[in-house]
Every structure is written in C-alpha cells, then in structure tokens.
Nucleic acid binder design. Structure first.
Lengths: 142, 142
DNA sequence: TTAAGTGCAAATTATTTGCAGTAAG
DNA sequence: CTTACTGCAAATAATTTGCACTTAA
C-alpha cells in the first residue's frame, strides 16, 4: 500500500536540497510532493495528514521539518493569518485565495492577475516580494 | 503639557464608534489619531508609546482596547507577519510596505499601484479584500 | 563513528480570559 | 445604580528549544 512513486519523489525532493532523507522527512515529503500537485498546509495540518496515514512522526519534528523545508527553499511561507503559519509547495511568486470562513489557503490563477504598476521601493531598499492575498467570504445562498 | 487637541480628537474618534471614552481608551486614542496622521502599530508598540508618555495602562487593556478598536472598525488589522498582529488607523484598502529587517509596517503610495485585472472569486464566494504587501529588504551600501 | 535528526517535555511568545474591583452614563 | 471597563494573574495557542537517544552517511 506504500506508494513507491510518492516516496521516490519525496526522496529526490529532499536530496535536491541537500536534506538527509530520514524516515520522517521522506514520509512528510511524500505527503507534500508525492503526486506532483501543489499543496498548501500548516504544521498542524501536515501532522494530521501524517497521523492519518499511520506515519510515526512527532509534532515537534513536523514543526522542525517544515522549518527546514522552508529554509532550504523547498516550500514558501505564505502570510495570511495572525496565529498560524501557512506554507505552499509552489515556491513561485503567485497570488492566493484565503477562505476566511474555513481558514483555508488555495492558489489563485496567476494569469488572471494583472499588476501594471507597483510602488517603487523607497531609497535604500529593494523589493523582496509582492504578496497578493485575495480574501474570500462565502456568499450565503438562500 | 497634555495635548488638548489630541485628546479631543481621540475622544471624538471613540464616541463616533460608540465606544465609552474611558481614561485609558482616550489616552491610547490620542496616541493613535491625535495628530490626524495614519499610524501603524502592534499592541506591544502602542503599549510602549503609552508607557513612554507616562500613561497608566496595563498591557491586557491595550490588547483588549486594540481588539475593541478593530471590532468597531476604527482600525484595520494588516496581516504581514506570522507572530504579531499589526494594525493601521487608515481603514481604507491600500497597499503596504513591510520592512523585513526592522519588522516595521508603513503605507505604500496607493496611486503608484495599478491592478488592472483580478482573479474572480470562485463560485459561492465573494472577495472580502485584496491585500497587497510589498516586502522590502534593505540594500546594503558599501 | 560522528554529525545530524528525532522526540519528548519544558520554555517561549503573543494573546485572551476569569474575576474582583473601578468608573462612566 | 448598573453595566461596561480595567488590571492583574492564570490560561491558551502556536511554535521553539534543551537534551538524551537514534540513525544516515
């Protein structure tokens, strides 16, 4: 039942960033990039997914591992909410939808965003990134 | 030495939102809108400013008060950083600069931002707001 | 074999809350 | 008067860390 392809992908992803492919890291990596799709997650949600699949990983290790992935540039932190930290396996600059009702982060179609002019960085500074978060609220249907 | 104009402005600001102008609230309000300029702050930074001016306000009250201001629509929460909550007395939708080195939030000139197209809200949702944060990093000068 | 990774439990940080006392309308 | 506000101190939530143990290279 263990998905060899997902595990291989995860292992490659780790080694490409010079991270030691330990059992725990491979398990988490497989969950994140095993199917090649972009994934949005928090430390807690990743921990929950791991537990669901019966993987033995401690919460502290999930936190440490996600931090390591982020430092290695494998995932991108997305700032959307005061308390929790959200991460995205898609590290390219792109806009996000944040579903306020469910506190869920998803990708917004980058090709539908057109920014034709951006405030210049003030003297002595340069632009590190431009974060665009489109906050969504569910329309109540009656 | 007490700035009557600032206090009056603060008091008006509070009553306009049906908030009881208590001594502590008026002091904080005067710090925030006393000079009519927009202000960016965190609970901690506002607490520090209050202490600096010799105002007797507890940290818990600063937190509660800022939350009350936010709920009343007097200030806007700006999500820029995982840990702390930032607030802005300018409640109009406008872009921000976030100085990563100092963890400081400032306004970006709204007239220099031109978004000509925005991803449509998915079925069943509507756009609550579009947050644009331009992250700045200081250019090291040698 | 050895430096890096793991997993507890305890520490830390930002924030909220319970509750007794205080003050505004 | 009476309801809301204040201020402690304790509670909470997300995350990090110290340290002994384990494991990949």
């Amino acid at each position: 039942m263990t998905d060899t392809l997902a595990i291989n992908r995860g292992t490659q992803w780790l080694t490409s960033a010079d991270l030691r492919p330990t059992r725990q890291r491979v398990a988490l990596a497989a969950l994140l990039v095993g199917d090649g799709k972009d994934r949005h997650f928090t430390a807690e949600s990743l921990f929950a997914s791991a537990k669901e699949r019966g993987e033995a990983v401690s919460l502290a290790t999930v936190y440490n591992t996600v931090r390591a992935f982020c430092d290695a540039g494998l995932v991108q932190e997305v700032t959307v909410e005061g308390s929790k930290s959200y991460f995205d396996t898609n590290t390219h600059d792109h806009p996000h939808f944040f579903w306020e009702d469910d506190q869920v982060l998803t990708d917004a179609p980058a090709e539908e965003l057109e920014i034709t002019r951006i405030p210049a960085a003030p003297e002595g500074a340069e632009i590190a990134s431009v974060d665009v978060v489109i906050r969504l609220r569910k329309t109540q249907r009656q």
